[in-house]
Design a protein around this nucleic acid. Structure first.
Length: 593
RNA sequence: GCGGGUGUAGCUCAGUGGUAGAGCAUCUCCUUGCCAAGGAGAAUGUCGCGCGUUCGAAUCGCGUCACCCGCUCCA
């Protein structure tokens, strides 16, 4: 491992340790030896997550007029997961290459010809050993030396750093076995022997109903989005909204990750915050507004416009989400990855990953995808229930189009279908049928989906707030001071209240008074033990942005002008100011909300 | 899933076959007039879990669980 990587691993370990020590995050079921890939939030972690949830909910729905909230259940009719493609994609039997662990679908192995070569194991100069039989297919026409080189490379890449350089790996007990033709027991690319066929379903299976038969199988949702699509029509009908509008939801989702790792970053139970923002198809915009606005560098994205198509809406949401992250203190550490046409799923038109710097690398916090009408159409087809909306404005505008204008739109779309990078083009008859509905004012809305992970967000906040400084005291003793520079809006504790000395009842009484005053409005921590410096330090370590100290001036000992004033200490920089108790609440609320 | 590593007090770690330790943190009392001060005392672990070897296991062996690192996976 490089020095950087070691430092980053050490940093991550310190963060994990702080999280446990101070009650942010604990390992699940720890007293029973833990439980893989799941984590519990302690008192401070619960507050942090709650603050993030509230910030997201306010930004996405409460502060807007065009987004509605939803709170759907985790368990749903399994037909939803069939329609969405989740069951099909992950219920397949897969076989794993014994050399590289690359997986192939069991029913999709191309037949191979060649000679089977067996080895009893392998070893390396580093002392590393592989003590199991390796069976690899030497393909027809492959030279024995290039074959051996290839095997060494595959072994090295799977063993990681322990095995050292590939060319220094020694293959043991080489033995030529049978020649095979049309064998489906070897990986088509690597030639490694394939293991038994096993299901690799990333969804957590459960039984709905006490009889627990195969008929009762359902899944814990692997994402919250599908519930929004499934309830789209109900929300639409119940809320007197018009497209464009959105539905957002916060909730738990579950995935049987093969390898949970990086603390809470990839876990099997996690919380998502998702918005499905429904928009008109571009063709509808063209009919109503005459044209679809084009994006250019520096375009004004602050206020949505009637002539925006999916591209501008997509960029608008990237902009909105960026502003959100800036508002919780993650502004400076974000990166963006615009997926290329090759990266994109066949139904997606564009997808931006918002990435954030973590000690273990730059990883995805949120994905913002333009998914067209893929999801609603899939549910419309599978359920047989129309997911179309009727748009009066569109119907009126379409009625004014000439037949030539209509045909020109159809031709334009047909050409676009032919030049698709991924997926089959839509048949002409289907395109014409779709326009037929559109001209009458009916369409299935398209969607922009900003999908964020709450646990990742919480981890990003903690990791990026973590700061160590070395301090030397009067005796020359060096010590490391840890500060979590959390944004006041997300900090679990907003302010600490301290009497300067606990053996002076007047100070304690006054401090309790201030504590009671603030407590009803924010999370406040009262502390009277140990020295004032230590109390400040304790709060710095958990990211409390403010400290209030009640001293003898507060009691009026230095004159009436300081009576009922306190020291307000700022975590970042440590500067102090004298504030009247009556001004405290307003001043603090402005900072923390 | 494969390979490597780790697992001892809340945290960081020492302890390699013979009665479980240190520093920090925690709690109590005293002291303390603004940035991890000092004193006195207290509490805290069947050494991840199970099985085995041994007169005797934190220590040796096997298994298992969890975490970390490297592969792999991540719709």
């Amino acid at each position: 491992m490089s020095t950087d990587a070691k430092n980053n691993t050490a940093l991550m370990e310190k963060i994990v340790s702080l999280c446990k020590r101070r009650g942010f995050i604990f390992q699940s079921s720890e007293i029973y030896g833990g439980c893989g890939g799941v984590w519990d939030y302690g008192p401070l972690g619960a507050e942090l997550k709650r603050n993030l949830r509230t910030a997201w909910w306010n930004a996405m729905t409460r502060d807007r007029e065009d987004v509605l909230g939803l709170d759907a259940s985790i368990l749903m009719n399994p037909a939803i997961w069939k329609a969405s493609g989740h069951v099909e994609t992950f219920a397949d039997l897969m076989r794993e290459c014994s050399l590289t662990n690359k997986r192939v679908r069991a029913d999709h192995v191309d037949p191979q010809d060649g000679v089977i070569m067996n080895y009893t194991g392998a070893e390396a100069a580093t002392g590393w050993k592989l003590d199991r039989v390796i069976s690899v297919l030497m393909k027809k026409g492959e030279h024995i030396e290039s074959f051996r080189k290839r095997v060494r490379l595959l072994i090295a890449s799977n063993a990681g750093e322990a095995a050292g350089k590939p060319e220094e790996i020694v293959l043991l007990g080489e033995a030529k076995a049978d020649a095979v033709e049309g064998s489906i027991d070897y990986h088509p690319e690597t030639g490694g022997a394939l293991g038994p066929a096993r299901p690799f379903n990333l969804m957590l299976k459960t039984y709905l109903g006490p009889t627990a038969t195969e008929d009762d199988v359902t899944y814990l949702r692997p994402e919250t989005a599908q519930a929004i699509f499934a309830q789209f029509k109900n929300v639409f009908d119940a809320s007197r909204v018009k497209v464009p509008f959105g539905i957002c939801q916060i909730g738990k989702a579950f995935r049987n990750e093969v390898t949970p790792k990086n603390f809470t970053f990839r876990s099997r139970e996690f919380e998502q915050m998702e918005l499905e923002f429904f928009i008109k198809p571009d063709e509808a915009i063209e009919i109503i507004s005459g044209e679809v606005a084009a994006w250019s560098e520096g375009a004004d994205l602050s206020e949505p416009q009637a002539n925006w198509g999916w591209d501008l809406w997509h960029r608008y949401w990237v902009d909105q989400r960026t502003k959100f992250y800036e508002g919780i203190g993650l502004g400076g550490v974000l990166e963006y990855y615009w997926q290329t046409p090759e990266d994109l799923a066949h139904y997606a038109r564009a997808c931006v990953d918002i990435l954030c710097h973590f000690p273990f690398g730059t990883e995805e916090l949120e994905g913002i995808a333009a998914r067209g009408s893929f999801d609603l159409t899939a549910h419309q087809n599978a359920s047989g229930k129309s997911q179309e909306v009727f748009d009066e404005e569109l119907k009126v505008a379409a009625a004014k189009l000439s037949d030539e204008q209509k045909e020109a739109m159809i031709q334009k779309r047909l050409a676009a279908e032919q030049s698709k990078v991924k997926g089959a083009p839509m048949a002409e008859a289907d395109v014409r049928a779709w326009f037929e509905r559109l001209f009458k004012g009916n369409y299935v809305p398209h969607v922009i989906e900003p999908s964020a992970g709450l646990d990742r967000m919480a981890l990003a906040i903690i990791a990026n707030a973590y700061e160590e400084t070395e301090k030397t005291d009067e005796k020359g003793k060096k010590e490391v001071i840890t500060v979590l520079k959390l944004h006041p809006r997300v900090a679990p504790i907003k302010v600490g209240v301290f009497p300067l000395l606990k053996n002076k009842p007047e100070l304690v009484a006054k401090a309790r008074e201030v504590y009671a005053l603030l407590k009803r409005h924010m999370n406040v921590f009262y502390d009277e033990t140990a020295s004032i410096g230590r109390r400040y330090a304790r709060q710095d370590e958990v990211g409390t942005p403010f400290g209030i100290t009640i001293d003898f001036d507060t009691l009026g000992e230095k004159g009436p002008e300081l009576l009922d004033t306190v020291t307000l200490r700022h975590r970042d920089g440590g500067e102090q100011e004298r504030v009247k108790i009556s001004d405290l609440l307003g001043k603090l609320l402005a900072e923390v909300s």
